[in-house]
Write a protein that binds this DNA or RNA. Structure first.
Lengths: 172, 172
DNA sequence: TTGGCTGCAAAAATTTTGCAGTACC
DNA sequence: GGTACTGCAAAATTTTTGCAGCCAA
């Protein structure tokens, strides 16, 4: 499923003075199999076939792979960053703030934005894994489509007392 | 400084069955004074004048204010979400992955993107506090401006050994 | 060989919760 | 007066580190 535009991981690692180890390859494969995943998910996937791989190794591996550019990460949900395989088709994420669903969208839709920002301030946007927050079609109430419209969650405030934590589905 | 388009916080809270307390007002004021801040920064700012306000209160307050739409949050850096006052001029953030600097940009530059996404999938983007990651002008090396170009941090991999954690300036 | 990498376990940092008292409506 | 909110302290999580042995190159 994920054999997009392969990159020679080993070579890239070596070029940076790092090494290509079994664990690193395992993490890379797990990620490309999963498409995108959090540290936990990734650790679980790797440990399915290599139980001794420790969580700290996954953390350190991801950090290294990220530094070398073999993976990227975005912040889809609160605390935990979500990692992506560079080997994967570049895409951006649409994160629904209401139901938590994560959908993908072609990066092309944001090409103009990148250009505009570049022109306006010289900043170069990394679109490969941009995350857009908002409301998915099914959660969007019949409100005008003004993207600047204040908080989308205004009228359905919590009943009272404990504030309901928004559901947290993470499947794409 | 930050008396943009005011919102009646008390009213909005009450409308949701919540209450307007001194602590909540303090958090709101601190946030509007700071523009945007993490939980820690906010707690510090609040505690400067109200030392007894506990960190857990800040967490719970932010959660409540967010649910009611009086504040929003984005994920500028790794773990900690950054909160924003709705009272503030809407803007998006340009986060440099190299030096960590955070700059602001007018939301207008992304209006078309919102429309395109809306059209493509029915998803309504909340642009008010979008975060774009990439390279600021001073950190962008002389590379072609292809926003799809693989990882921007490819050739300057860590010397070896411990991977240098990117600096973490958070001033806008 | 050499020095980067890994596993294990402990330490640190970050968030969340339980409760009894307090304050807002 | 009823009930949401707060502070404090403890509990639960999530990440980071120290080290001795292991393994790519």
């Amino acid at each position: 499923m994920a054999a997009g535009r392969s990159v020679d991981a080993a070579a890239r690692l070596r070029a940076a003075g790092l090494r290509s180890t079994g664990q690193r390859r395992a993490v890379l494969e797990a990620l490309s199999r999963l498409g995108h995943a959090t540290v936990d998910e990734l650790a679980a996937e790797v440990q399915a076939s290599m139980p001794e791989v420790s969580l700290s190794t996954v953390y350190r591996t991801l950090e290294a792979l990220d530094a070398v550019g073999l993976v990227t990460h975005t912040h889809l949900h609160h605390g935990a960053p979500t990692y992506h395989s560079v080997d994967d088709e570049p895409h951006l994420h649409l994160v629904c703030q209401a139901c938590g669903a994560v959908a993908s969208e072609s990066v092309e839709v944001a090409l103009d934005l990148a250009t505009a920002v570049r022109r306006a301030s010289g900043f170069r946007v990394d679109l490969t894994h941009l995350a857009l927050h908002g409301r998915c079609a099914s959660c969007a109430p019949a409100i005008p489509d003004d993207p600047l419209a204040p908080p989308l969650h205004t009228s359905e405030a919590p009943a009272a007392g404990s504030l309901p934590a928004p559901p947290t589905l993470t499947e794409a």
